[in-house]
Design a protein around this nucleic acid. Sequence first.
DNA 1: TCAATTTTTTAGATTAGACTAAATATTTTA
DNA 2: TAAAATATTTAGTCTAATCTAAAAAATTGA
Lengths: 217, 217
Amino acid sequence: MFSFSEENYLKAVFHLERKYKGGVSTNALAEEMETKASSVTDMIRKLSDKQLVIYKKYQGVKLSEKGRATAIEVIRKHRLWEFFLVEKLNFNWDEVHDVAEQLEHIKSEKLTRELDKFLGFPKRDPHGDPIPDAEGNFSVSNKLLLSELDKGQTGICVGVKDTSADFLRYLDKNKIALGKTVEVKDIEDFDNSMLIVIDGEELRISQAISGNLFIKM
Amino acid sequence: MFSFSEENYLKAVFHLERKYKGGVSTNALAEEMETKASSVTDMIRKLSDKQLVIYKKYQGVKLSEKGRATAIEVIRKHRLWEFFLVEKLNFNWDEVHDVAEQLEHIKSEKLTRELDKFLGFPKRDPHGDPIPDAEGNFSVSNKLLLSELDKGQTGICVGVKDTSADFLRYLDKNKIALGKTVEVKDIEDFDNSMLIVIDGEELRISQAISGNLFIKM
DNA sequence: TCAATTTTTTAGATTAGACTAAATATTTTA
DNA sequence: TAAAATATTTAGTCTAATCTAAAAAATTGA
Ligand SMILES: [Mn+2]
Ligand SMILES: [Mn+2]
Ligand SMILES: [Mn+2]
Ligand SMILES: [Mn+2]
């Protein structure tokens, strides 16, 4: 059907559309894909010819319905595999991304459907991101960043914005995990660092941390 | 590490070495890979440059130790994934090959190791072929073809030579499965067809069938 | 508003892997 | 043992996906 590269571009456009509502720019896409703008222009043309994106020169791209469905299907597979790796194969949540980047391109409807069933139709991946169902539907919960909480407020960790291994291992090291309750004890005006309580233990975290942890109140 | 194409060629050389002991010819490889001899020559050069095969012009190829280890690793993954699909995801044995052809190229040592463990270190894939262990070791049992049995002899089905969906579905339809006992009731001289007994039922099979079913006595 | 800066596209190359057609080497057979 | 047949390699082309450098369009801001 589509090449790995085409699928990766579609996924990138999908993720960037949240931020760039009026159309995703060539440069934004080049940065996301870690490639050159000229390469992006080439690929955009190709995706446009295949009716996967809507493109007018110098105006950026948007996903077509077909492009969006394809992107969501790839994301569904990525997250299902991440769930599989953590739940069944003893992977830690900081180890799954690169493998899922490969597995998301395996083409087999039956495989995806049966994997989903085998895993019990999970709703969220190990990083708290929603897993689209077979029809491409997924919940967008109204979570907020820990950094947006005020002193005295309490919430539950439900996801991470940054999914880098470094950040995830920091969280592991400090016993911060999805599902746990955090309370904002104090906020330092100077650097916006926070004193939080988690598992009854006090912990001081920088804004680099609180700005990458999703909370539900 | 290596491209999908390189891995597929190595696998093909590995399988063909059984038949062509003195070196696998360009044409044999071209047929196995369903490609042209000229493409094979190109790839052989590349594999030779990478020290994966031993090659002298016009003399065919053999795997180097490094090439053999790589081929075995790919075959290990292929068969582990086939086992996974049948045992955990409700695939039938005639549906697994194409998906395994994709999955065998996923690069992650941890994934292979943990999948193996998760599956309970299986020794054989759904078609009766041995699954190499993490060190690349696997048993080569001395099975023979059903067509080699004489009238009156009995054996257990342990594998299939042809793994095409058509053949496997024929076996399913006729209740022939690995592990079952077959008895050769009669052999027709004219066309070598056999009258066999399986599950207490008589069945007449052509040589196309008996020549593709492995038996252990 | 128009020159400078930034963004995007175009032009031209490169690499992997495949193909066709032609050349050359090897093997078979008369 | 020399044609004939077959197998293999070489030469040249093609496509997908990438790159660099240059050109062109859009945006910014003095
Ligand atoms: Mn991921
Ligand atoms: Mn994830
Ligand atoms: Mn197979
Ligand atoms: Mn198999």
